[in-house]
Simulated scan of single mutants.
Amino acid sequence: MKYTQLGHTGLQVSRIVLGTMNFGPQTDEGASHAIMDAALGAGINFFDTANAYGWGENKGRTEEIIGSWFAKGGGRRDKTVLATKLYANMGVDEPWPNHHKLSAVNIRRSVEASLKRLGTDHIDIYQFHHIDRLTPFEEIWQAIDVLITQGKILYAGSSNFPGYKIAQANEIAARTGRLGLVSEQCLYNLAERRAEMEIIPAAVDYGLGVIPWSPLHGGMLGGILRKEREGSGSRSQGGIAVQTLAKPGVREQVLAYEELVAKHDLDPAEVALAWLLTRPGVAGPIVGPRTADQLDAPLRAVELDLPQEFLTALDDIFPGPGPSPEAFAW
């Protein structure tokens, strides 16, 4: 495994991030524990979750599964860089007032609940899962300061933030001598490169580590057409992948991608992950295996060195939007 510093922090993280969203809904507790054991054994030390994972009436279940894994001991918690998120309303039957978004009261309630479910005394990176258009960052940072002082969190990160909110958050933090955001978790992959217009430049300029989610675009970049021909596709390759393939020109792009990868005797999923590791600011993409065996491709991707001519060919198939404002202006 290779490691990097997370943004401008002193925190060293693996270049692959273990996503846990499947833990509970698709992967039971025993299998989830096996995946975490395998990941840690392979050197993946960066685990990502959220208080809402488990979904519906099972919100919080994923954090509980991670907590029961930590409880097994063996240094599991000390060896793990743990990131979780808050924003969603955690009411099951009906929304609870002041139990969502980024108000100071919800930040306090949410961190206490996550710490309890996770069975730990601190969270390494506490991430805002979405922007809050009503709560000012002055209030948010004051609440985060309290948690840092109490030792309940070490850093704050963002997820699904536009570039201007990254700038706003960190400018307000800087005015008051705070560290600000240290990471941004965003939708970013070969087929979805709009983040390059403003999110990635903002993250790089403000020293945030970028953590791409959906690096295979819902399975579309994982050899979906080959699997379609072979009849070996899985249910997980529905949803966003099928919908995106139906858009004009996309199937042709994916076919060209798979043909290029096959020509070089490479695996499409590994290439998609390795490509992200070449991008400015990227700390590591999030992978969400449903079994321990599905960690093999991400581990190989870390060691994959893509030559410049191959990267150029990928750009020809999936051209990025270009920087802003040129992407949408003269």
Rank of each mutant, 00 (worst) to 15 (best):
A39S: 04
D205C: 15
A202Q: 09
A297T: 14
L18R: 12
A83M: 06
G284V: 06
S158D: 10
D293I: 06
E228F: 03
P280W: 08
R175P: 04
G284P: 09
N170Y: 13
G163N: 13
I66V: 11
V17W: 01
A292S: 13
Q26M: 14
V261F: 07
E198K: 14
R251F: 07
H100W: 10
S214Q: 07
K165N: 15
F70G: 10
G157Y: 00
E64F: 06
E196Q: 12
V111W: 05
G19Y: 02
N98E: 15
P212A: 01
A292I: 08
H130A: 15
G73N: 13
P248Y: 04
F310V: 12
R117Q: 08
G10E: 01
E303W: 03
F318I: 05
G157I: 10
R235E: 08
L40C: 02
A174R: 13
A169I: 03
R76F: 06
P323M: 10
G209V: 03
K152H: 09
Q168T: 14
R61T: 14
V13R: 11
T278P: 11
F47R: 01
I144Q: 01
G218R: 00
L86Q: 04
A34R: 09
R109K: 15
S232G: 10
L273W: 03
G56S: 09
Q185G: 13
V182N: 10
S110H: 00
L216V: 09
V81P: 02
R279C: 02
Q26K: 14
I199P: 05
S214W: 04
A31D: 14
A42L: 08
F328A: 14
N160M: 13
R193D: 05
Y257C: 05
E192A: 14
S110F: 03
T9A: 11
V261Y: 03
E303M: 10
L181F: 11
